[in-house]
Write a protein that binds this DNA or RNA. Structure first.
Lengths: 144, 144
DNA sequence: TATAAAACCTGTAGTAACTACAGGTTCAAG
DNA sequence: CTTGAACCTGTAGTTACTACAGGTTTTATA
């Protein structure tokens, strides 16, 4: 099968497993141009190598982090086009990082709100009439 | 609920304005059963009252907090059906907050990587194999 | 080596959660 | 009583997948 050295050829299924997504998703990314068109076996099956595996994992994690596909495309441009000038890369990277920071701030506010609400909850023995989460969400915006 | 002579009849546009969403979204929520089928004017326009306004605001806030429509459905079931406890709602909220925390952690790692990369950007070109962004997101995959 | 089953192929259609029309009707201000 | 904003239904588009259908290739096992 394979020798003792690290595996270097992967099927589309291998990539899907490693990146926790569906095989169809890998093909979809190829269709929309996030993943490169891979080599094929004689029979037409896709073959990938380590760089494509890394790339897919990067895409998946970026998506999980709330980047849209077009934002992932922008991030990948850093990788795909190394002929940017240094200042260009730096500017784009810093802009991206600001957006990331905004996201972190938003999520932290959200997290705080969720925990605060949960904390005010009395627990299993109390009826919904006294549930602060429901109350907080039902509160009229103008009465505050 | 309000003892003052508050407005009691609302149009779909009023609801949309009050809940910061589109008119189409209100109708959509009706179609998928999150909002009740409202009364109508002679001419067929939707009329709502205070409870429906509150319900819509509840739905929108829950969505903004990252609950999916089906999770909102669950929350509303707690409200619509008696015999549920505060603890059930708390459980749902805590699960939600954990997911948010996980996203925050990931974003902070990415943020660090982006800043690092910007910082190291002094003329080097990063190939796919040694890109710190790629690496930051590739690492820790199997470390739980 | 034969064969069964798993994995792959292309292509299309469905999903979630809206959002945007098109083409027509009703309501309310002046 | 007019006019234009707001409403109506219904369909189609959007994003980012996900699920088939119907067929071919690869691989594990007898």
């Amino acid at each position: 099968m394979q020798e003792h050295s690290a595996k270097t050829a992967f099927s589309v299924g291998d990539l899907a497993r490693a990146s926790q997504c569906k095989v169809e998703t890998v093909r979809y990314y190829e269709k929309i141009g996030l993943m490169p068109t891979p080599q094929r076996t004689e029979g037409g099956h896709r073959i990938y190598n380590q760089p494509e595996l890394k790339r897919l994992i990067f895409i998946r994690r970026s998506r999980d982090l709330g980047f849209s596909v077009s934002q992932v495309r922008d991030l990948l441009r850093f990788v795909d086009e190394p002929n940017h000038t240094c200042g260009e890369v730096k500017t784009l990277t810093l802009a991206q990082s600001e957006e990331v920071q905004r996201k972190i701030d938003d999520l932290q506010r959200l997290h705080k709100a969720l925990l605060e609400m949960a904390d005010r909850c009395k627990g299993e023995n109390y009826s919904l009439e006294q549930c602060p989460i429901i109350d907080a969400l039902f509160e009229d915006q103008n009465e505050q």
